[in-house]
Design a protein around this nucleic acid. Structure first.
Lengths: 130, 130
DNA sequence: ACTATGTTTGAACAATCCCTCAATTGAATG
DNA sequence: CATTCAATTGAGGGATTGTTCAAACATAGT
């Protein structure tokens, strides 16, 4: 129980409760929050955020989001200052994360941002300060 | 102009335009998209996403989001299986990214998720498939 | 002042990431 | 079938990250 000793002192200090029932009640609340926070969505969300947390990949998503339609790799490659290989690696990661979908059209490959990708960008744009 | 040769072939192949005006028009569109995608928001967004793209830091934000109120470090530390030092490093990065705010209360430190943090989590929750 | 406790900071190191290069696949065309 | 071009894949290595440990700082109580 060493991990809760500090919490017990905190509850005694800052919240009225000095009794064991107050401590255990708050502990139960926190456990419940923890259970809700640690669901299966955690790994998927962290994977998605990791995929977006890179300038090259973020820029690809942003370009596809602004375009509002599917784009050929050859269309946005000139806008990124990395090799075609790096772009392909980036597209693979974005696909795995559920942020883009791929369509084959002859020898060209076209990519489109998913609704999930658009939702995250809209949230970022909508919460920007000033 | 070697970077646009492939694009020229693509436009000739897939879109009717074989003329230079068609190519330059599409190029202008893509340049405009690029300019919009590469604004000053890029670095800030990537920084924010990088801060969230880690299990420890994501879980802290998720806990604060669910709690809906400020929490003392000592309250959520027991829910994370890393050292206090790691938690403090995580809180520092989250603060720098604008995802949490800090308040001193005696010897305790209390943290709260920002509106921006909540907006991103809501977008993630709202776009989850089934 | 001294001590105890909560939190932060800096150094250090393993683990991971992100790029380039080289080779490969897949599709269209001569 | 050979060639050409678009895109992908895998290996390799330098850069970055995420954690722990030890030490320091800050606040409250004795």
């Amino acid at each position: 129980m060493s991990s809760t000793e500090r919490l017990q002192r905190y509850l005694a200090d800052e919240r009225g409760g000095c009794g064991d029932d107050e401590v255990s009640r708050r502990l139960a609340e926190l456990e419940e929050i923890d259970a809700a926070a640690g669901g299966p969505a955690l790994d998927e969300d962290v994977g998605l955020l990791s995929a977006l947390a890179n300038e090259t990949r973020y820029k690809i998503i942003r370009i596809l989001h602004i375009a509002g339609e599917e784009l050929c790799v050859c269309e946005f490659a000139p806008l990124l200052d990395v090799s075609d290989s790096a772009i392909s690696h980036a597209l693979s990661q974005l696909t795995d994360a559920g942020l883009i979908t791929r369509r084959k059209d002859g020898k060209w490959r076209k990519y489109r941002a998913t609704a999930r990708a658009n939702a995250v960008l809209v949230a970022l744009d909508g919460s920007r300060k000033l």
